[in-house]
């Protein structure tokens, strides 16, 4: 039953483009974090994570990842909770626990794409090499400390 619901959601069209516009218009995200020892992931990976996110996660965590009163934001505090932790644990958590109503439905590729997307949305830039999917290789990569940096844009 929950699985059916989940797959129905997966098929319905995303509002991705609009959501991304909203995210970048928010003054909270005008400040971009600096890159420092960020595990490499590809732009395609992050984009496939973004598409999946809009279909499977946005209804709870919000189109712009900011969560709500009862669902954690996947920006900001996510960094505080996961920085320095092996990526395999985050991928594992997402596979094991998310989406909340259909846990265990995501493939390792999907969960990895979502992790790439989460890094991108928290300020990391994509690179040439894709993030490896195997748990063993992810175990040696850490979620980066993506600190928010001062805003240099003219509109304050």
């Amino acid at each position: 039953m929950p699985r059916k619901f989940f797959f129905r959601l997966m098929r319905s069209g995303p509002l991705g483009a609009m959501a991304l516009y909203v995210a970048s218009a928010s003054p909270l995200h005008a400040a971009r974090p600096a890159a420092s020892s960020i595990p490499s992931f590809s732009a395609e990976q992050a984009q496939s994570g973004a598409d999946l996110y809009q279909r499977a996660c946005a209804m709870c965590h919000g189109a712009d990842l900011s969560g709500n009163f009862q669902t954690p934001s996947l920006k900001g505090r996510l960094v505080a909770s996961w920085a320095g932790i092996p990526l395999s644990r985050l991928t594992g958590y997402i596979q094991r626990a998310m989406p909340l109503m259909a846990p265990g439905t995501l493939s390792p590729e999907d969960a990895t794409a979502l992790v790439a997307f989460l890094m991108r949305e928290n300020g990391a830039s994509p690179a040439k090499t894709a993030l490896p999917v195997t748990e063993k290789r992810q175990a040696s990569l850490k979620f980066p400390a993506l600190a928010i940096q001062p805003d240099t844009s003219p509109s304050k």
């Binding site: 909270l28 400040a31 974090p33 900011s66 934001s73 920006k75 900001g76 505090r77 960094v79 505080a80 920085a83 928290n122 400390a145 993506l146 600190a147 928010i148």
Partner: peptide
């Protein structure tokens, strides 16, 4: 809450 969310990223 919005501001503290951002401050969290400073670790």
């Amino acid at each position: 809450s919005l501001v503290v969310e951002k401050v969290s990223t400073t670790l």
